[in-house]
């Protein structure tokens, strides 16, 4: 009865997913084998092809979340789809934020000799990660969809503010973390390093888009399951009982038979009505 394979993709998401995989494969090949070691950082420069792109996708996730939240807060635009997009952006952003902290911590140990330091950029990224976990926890704690969207929109705006401060932290504070690498008048990377870095941005960007699309769909399915899932489950169990009855197999019925200890017979015959399932 169990399916061998359930399709969860469309032609567009398959193309997006395969493009992301191809770009990330090129990033891995160029990043680990083709690109030469750096004069200053040596082999550690190979972390440059992961960490900045992942950190940018973390910002992109919280950016999507904030923009969708603003759209939801705007009375003319208000729609459940903005709330779904907001949670999709926040969850994917929090995963990329965790990857940023992991890779950054490893790079810090390799370059600075410590896994962690209370530097402005690092601390703000940790705060951002904590805020994103709080955002996701808050959404689980509130049942009413309107209140959930309203409260989580406020947290999304706070996260967006933290993203802005985090981005400019290397300019505004004295930090160990290096400043801008690419978005400066005179970029500090060239040749293979620059090419590999750009491909890494493309690969992680496509992966980010693929993840947001699938997470958005998951949100739609979860909402549908909340309203229709019970009816489907009941229907499936009834079908199983019916099949077992016709084939003569001994299978416990899904719904206890009326008149048994589990479901005693009613004193009065109940009218046959369809019970609306929510």
């Amino acid at each position: 009865m169990r399916s061998a394979r359930v399709p969860s993709s469309t032609r567009a998401t398959r193309a997006l997913g395969w493009s992301a995989l191809a770009a990330l494969a090129v990033t891995t090949w160029w990043g680990l084998w083709v690109s030469p070691p750096d004069v200053v950082q040596g082999q550690f420069v190979r972390m440059l092809y992961v960490h900045p792109a992942v950190a940018t996708m973390c910002y992109a996730g919280f950016g999507v979340c904030a923009l969708a939240s603003v759209a939801w807060l705007w009375p003319r635009l208000r729609s459940p789809r903005w709330d779904r997009l907001a949670v999709a952006g926040a969850e994917v952003g929090s995963v990329f934020c965790a990857a940023t902290l992991l890779t950054g911590s490893i790079w810090g140990r390799a370059s600075w000799g410590v896994w962690w330091t209370w530097d402005a950029r690092l601390t703000l990224t940790a705060i951002l990660f904590a805020l994103s976990l709080g955002y996701l926890a808050l959404r689980r704690a509130i049942d009413n969809p309107h209140s959930r969207a309203l409260v989580s929109s406020m947290v999304a705006l706070l996260m967006a503010l933290t993203v802005i401060v985090d981005h400019y932290a290397t300019d505004w504070f004295v930090t160990l973390h290096q400043g801008e690498t690419l978005l400066t008048p005179d970029p500090t990377v060239h040749g293979w390093q620059l090419a590999t870095m750009l491909v890494s941005f493309l690969g992680f960007g496509l992966l980010f888009a693929w993840m947001v699309v699938h997470r958005y769909r998951l949100e739609v399915l979860e909402e549908r399951y909340e309203t229709e899932g019970f009816a489907f489950a009941l229907q499936a169990r009834r079908a199983e009982s019916r099949d077992a009855g016709t084939s003569g197999r001994a299978l416990a019925p899904a719904v206890p038979a009326v008149g048994t200890a589990a479901a005693p017979a009613p004193l009065r015959a109940a009218p046959a009505v369809e019970v609306p399932v929510r």
């Binding site: 990043g31 190979r46 992991l102 790079w107 390799a110």
Partner: peptide, 10 residues
């Protein structure tokens, strides 16, 4: 380098 591998794999 071990650190590079750890960062990529994690």
């Amino acid at each position: 380098n071990g650190y590079v591998l750890a960062a990529w794999l994690s």
